[in-house]
Design a protein around this nucleic acid. Structure first.
Length: 465
RNA sequence: GGCGACGUAGCCAAGUGGUUAAGGCGGGGGUCUGCAAAACCCCUAUUCGGCGGUUCGAUUCCGCCCGUCGCCUCCA
């Protein structure tokens, strides 16, 4: 398959270093609930993860939690909780959110606070090699020691320095030098180190964890586009400086950012919708479909209109996957020509995914397949094999569940609806249609939609309000 | 200001130097139904922001312009 690499700006053939693909994706800083922008990113990398395994690769997937930083400290203080309590709560919530979105688990979820020895080792190594220097209890990375600094984000130190918002710290040699280790302030969580009590700076934890769990050279390093600079740029400087191995990551994969009302969604702007908010209104499949409908490198857009449309689209795939042929049930005796052969669709799907994870195109193939399944099922042909392919590709590769949004119906309501449905059926049998329609209106007022068929009447909760 | 991305039907969104420019939503028509709903089927861009250029031929390559957005500060 071909994959885009932010560093070279090229789309190249992806070949892992050895039989196991090493993939590291930056995780969250657990100081608040994850929002749908996070959902977009982790769904994208989930699909990459799934597709690599679908292709037969072994994947070792590492995703971190940066469970110590300024915002965590500030938020914990505001809530009179410890940093650890706050982090644990949001990490637990994150796992629930990901499970609800049908995101497969990574193999390792290291946490910054549990990797202090490795972090200290990396910082020490960087000092020894001249890439870093202690200063007043802090330790800084010396950006001028890396001539290629800026190679990922395609900018030069001079250009960055020209930026008006860079402040020169008194204890730094260069304004772009960034902190590896921060001296502890009173009351803050801290760990012992050769430079005194302190805590890791922002970027170092990812270098330490990637080096520890995946080695000096990894195949894929992923994250949102907003991490390209400074986070990933600094990770490269730290990791390559420490290990002496280039490249630290062979493919840098960045997803575009999710927008809400024409602006990117972010914690700092406050314009966010949490994953729980979204899941309360839309199915996991709808959320995934809305993400995968656009290429991962471009921006995504969250809106009720888009999600409602995706919900309908999800229902369309589900319908086709479980549609029953109108004629005789399929059997082994079914002539070849009376069967829908999905192999061409399958090839097109794989070709699309092979081309830098072109999920919009892959999805289009699935919709084409759904269309053919419906048409042929109507004509009485055997579509079982095609349906199996639809389910297989949708579930295994795209992480769709083909299930409706679950839960939310209590027994009392169900009993009431059942009784009303029964009454309406009796009225219909008696051809008292006006009365039957009145009952239907009553049922509709409860937020329930009825579906009549030859086998009887079924009901379900209407779509999101 | 520097660097970068993008502008395709009512909306979302793939894609290609040249036969009919994917797919989804929405909309229109039809099948089914007591009527509906749901579901399914059919239809729905002579055209790809604007102006030039290269070319036999450009939506696709180049230049300029207009517009939107991102990064340069915490962010997936």
């Amino acid at each position: 398959m071909r994959l885009s690499d932010t560093l070279t700006g090229e789309k190249r053939d992806f070949v892992p270093l050895d039989s196991t693909v090493r993939m590291y994706v930056c995780g969250i800083t657990p100081y608040a609930s994850a929002h749908v922008g996070h959902a977009m990113s982790y769904i994208v990398f989930d699909v990459l993860h799934r597709y690599l395994e679908f292709k037969g690769y072994n994947v070792r997937y590492v995703q971190n939690f940066t469970d110590i930083d300024d915002k965590l400290i500030a938020r914990a203080a505001a809530e009179s909780a410890t940093v650890q309590e706050l982090a644990e709560r949001h990490i637990a919530e994150y796992f629930e959110d990901m499970a609800a979105l049908n995101v497969l688990e990574a193999d390792v979820y290291p946490r910054a606070t549990q990797e202090i020895p490795k972090i200290v080792e990396v910082v020490s190594g960087l000092i020894e090699k001249g890439y870093a220097y202690p200063s007043g209890g802090d330790v800084y990375f010396r950006v001028r020691s890396v001539p290629s600094y800026g190679k990922l984000s395609h900018r030069s130190l001079d250009a960055m320095r020209a930026g008006a918002r860079v402040e020169v710290g008194v204890e730094k040699e260069h304004p772009m030098d960034f902190v590896l280790w921060k001296a502890a302030k009173p009351g803050e969580p801290s760990w012992e180190s050769p430079w005194g009590p302190g805590r890791p700076g922002w970027h170092i934890e990812c270098s330490a964890m990637a080096l520890r769990y995946l080695g000096d050279s990894i195949d894929i390093h992923g994250g949102g586009q907003d991490l390209v600079f400074p986070h990933h740029e600094n990770e490269i400087a730290q990791s390559e400086g420490f290990s002496g191995t280039e490249p630290f990551a062979r493919f840098w994969v960045h997803n575009g950012l999710l927008h809400l009302d024409a602006e990117k969604m972010s914690k700092s702007l406050g314009n966010l919708v949490t994953i729980r908010d979204a899941l309360a209104r839309y199915s996991s499949d709808a959320i995934r479909l809305s993400v995968l409908n656009a290429h991962y490198r471009g921006p995504g857009y969250y809106s009720d209109e888009a999600l409602a449309g995706a919900e309908r689209a999800a229902a369309r795939l589900r319908q086709a996957a479980f549609a029953r042929p109108v004629a005789a049930p399929p059997s082994a005796a079914t002539p070849e020509k009376e069967r829908l052969d999905p192999s061409a669709h399958r090839e097109r799907f794989i070709a699309a995914m092979d081309d830098d994870l072109n999920t919009p195109q892959a999805l289009a193939v699935l919709f084409d397949l759904a269309h053919d399944v419906n048409r042929d099922a109507e004509a009485g042909r055997d579509v079982a094999g095609a349906q199996a392919t639809l389910l297989e590709l949708g579930r295994e590769v795209l992480g769709l569940t083909f299930e409706e949004r679950g839960g939310g119906i209590d027994d009392e309501l169900a009993a009431r609806v059942e009784a009303l449905v029964e009454r309406r059926s009796e009225l219909r049998a008696a051809k008292r249609f006006a009365d039957a329609d009145a009952v239907r209106d009553e049922i509709a007022a409860l937020g329930v939609t009825l579906t009549d068929s030859a086998e009887g009447t079924t009901w379900k909760m209407s779509g999101p309000s």
